[in-house]
């Protein structure tokens, strides 16, 4: 999708699959000059600490390659599990749906610490 990469996780992530995803994604970011990565995990209903960490790693790597990562469509059960595991994924930006995630990427987000709400008013002013 233009300068954005869209990753949809359709099956349960094994550790190896997650590693493969990480490698593929970094290569594609470089090849496509992508500026944003959208990871849709709405089909994922089981996570463990490894997958949680993997998501964090992918976000950090993309950032190094100057691409923002937005994780969208996380299920309530998955969110609770990650929080209980102590993995609140502070570096990752999240959105409820693919649409909102794309909106987030399009609005030219900058600085991963800022939330979409903090950027919201700025966008309207500009």
């Amino acid at each position: 999708m233009g300068e954005f990469l869209l990753v949809t996780v359709q099956v349960d992530m094994h550790d190896r699959l997650a590693m493969a995803l990480q490698d593929d994604l970094t290569e594609r970011i470089v090849a496509n000059h992508a500026r944003g990565v959208l990871i849709d995990i709405s089909a994922l209903d089981v996570v463990d600490s490894f997958i949680g960490r993997m998501l964090g790693n992918i976000a950090s790597m993309s950032r190094v390659l100057d691409a923002e990562t937005v994780v969208v469509g996380m299920r309530p059960a998955v969110a609770i599990t990650l929080v209980e595991l102590g993995l609140a994924l502070p570096g990752i930006r999240t959105a409820l749906s693919v649409e909102r995630g794309m909106q987030m990427l399009r609005s030219g987000i900058s600085g991963h610490q800022r939330s979409v709400f903090e950027t919201g008013p700025d966008d309207r002013q500009s």
């Binding site: 994780v71 969208v72 996380m74 309530p76 998955v78 969110a79 609770i80 990650l82 929080v83 209980e84 609140a88 994924l89 999240t94 959105a95 409820l96 749906s97 909102r100 995630g101 939330s115 979409v116 709400f117």
Partner: peptide, 13 residues
């Protein structure tokens, strides 16, 4: 804080 973190993961502030 846990509740807040979980809501954030779902994309809600």
């Amino acid at each position: 804080l846990k509740t807040v973190a979980a809501a954030r993961l779902m994309g809600a502030e």
